Computed example of a mutant assay.
Amino acid sequence: MFKRILPFLALLLAASPAAAWWEYGHHTVGRIGYMTASPATRAKIDRLIAQARTLETPTCPIRDIEDAAYWPDCIKTLKERFSYSASWHYQNVDVCKPFDLKEACKDGNCVSAQIERNAKLLADETLPVRERLMALAFLAHFVGDLHMPLHAGDRGDLGGNRLGANYGVIGGRTNLHSIWDGYLADRGISNPPGEAAGILSELDPGERAVAAQGSIEDWSRESWEASRDYAYATVLGDPCGPTPTARPTIDEATTRRLVPVIRKQIARGGLRLGRLLDEALS
């Protein structure tokens, strides 16, 4: 009997909504960034990762770019040691007001400010390897976070964490944030052609170059718009309308409409990460 229920336990654990984009999303953004960076940049990344023991986080190892991109979520289990980074994963920019990144990031403790900061740290060859490897991990992770719409925009509900919603027949404690963080991301990334290579295959070189352009503020605005126009509008109709009394459900038809949105956000995040890695390490 125990052997029979093990696969179901594994599925439940894998579905734990503890991290932005869950593991799959961050792994994919990191892999696309690595794939699209120059060979010289990849070699420098590999040399940094080879020194992962200097981080002294054996329960959160970094063996490749996927591990690095997920590491900032993994270290949340170490509690006080890295608790200072908790507010770096998101920025609460109100989707029902004019876009204002300065107000949301006035103290620098937000995801877009930390992307800029960690890119500078990664580029600084005078720093110890340990600090630059941490900067690599934070940079890869936060670029992924910024492209999860509900980490870039909200309506005073902690990025949809307070908006209960169902994903098909999956309900209970699910909310809009956990659905976009995990269930939709997993579906979108695995949808054929899946994984990093499959998502990239849908874009020609010209489209990739265009997607990688822009500033961190441009990307913040774009994800904020996606939060309003897709994440909230999908379940509320009016993204600034009243919170429904009954839990809204994202059904199969809606999921299929959102899969291209998810894939575009993952592709954008990965391509922009690749650009930032080249700029920092070239």
Rank of each mutant, 00 (worst) to 15 (best):
D67N: 13
V143C: 03
H89C: 08
V129D: 07
R132S: 06
D124R: 10
P58K: 05
L55F: 13
L101C: 02
G108H: 02
T41R: 01
F82K: 11
S83Y: 09
I45T: 01
K97Y: 07
F99H: 06
E131A: 14
T59F: 11
D107Q: 02
S85A: 15
C74E: 01
D64C: 09
I75K: 11
G144S: 10
P128M: 10
L78D: 09
I49S: 10
Y70H: 12
D124Q: 11
N92F: 14
E103G: 11
V143N: 04
K76E: 13
E56Y: 12
A104I: 01
P72V: 08
E125N: 13
H141W: 01
V93N: 08
E66G: 09
E80W: 13
L101E: 11
I62P: 08
L101R: 12
D124S: 12
D100G: 06
M134S: 11
F82D: 14
A43Y: 00
A104G: 02
H141A: 02
S87E: 14
D67L: 08
A113N: 05
Q51D: 13
G144A: 11
G108E: 03
F142H: 14
E56N: 15
E66Y: 04
L121G: 06
Q51H: 14
A123T: 02
S87K: 15
D107Y: 00
E66R: 14
Q91T: 05
E131S: 12
P72S: 04
Q114K: 12
D124I: 04
N109W: 08
T41V: 01
A50P: 07
V111G: 00
K76I: 14
E66S: 13
I75D: 08
L121R: 15
K44N: 00
H141M: 03
A52G: 11
T77H: 10
R42D: 00
T77D: 11
C105Q: 01
T59E: 15
E131P: 05
Y90I: 02
P58C: 05
E131I: 01
T57G: 08
D64W: 01
R47Q: 13
H141N: 11
P61A: 09
T54Y: 13
Q91K: 07
I115Q: 09
K44I: 00
L122P: 08
C96E: 05
L136N: 02
Y84G: 15
I49M: 12
P98D: 12
I65F: 02
S38R: 08
A140N: 04
F99R: 10
T57L: 07
K120T: 13
P58H: 02
H141P: 02
A68P: 09
T59M: 14
S87T: 15
T57H: 06
L78V: 12
R47E: 14
N118E: 10
L101N: 05
Y84D: 15
L78K: 10
V95D: 05
L133T: 00
Y84S: 15
E131C: 07
Q114S: 05
L78H: 11
I45C: 06
F82C: 10
N118L: 03
E56C: 12
F142Q: 13
A123R: 07
A40D: 11
I49L: 11
P98M: 06
T41M: 04
D94P: 04
Y70S: 07
A50E: 13
A50M: 06
K76D: 13
N92Q: 13
P39V: 01
D64E: 09
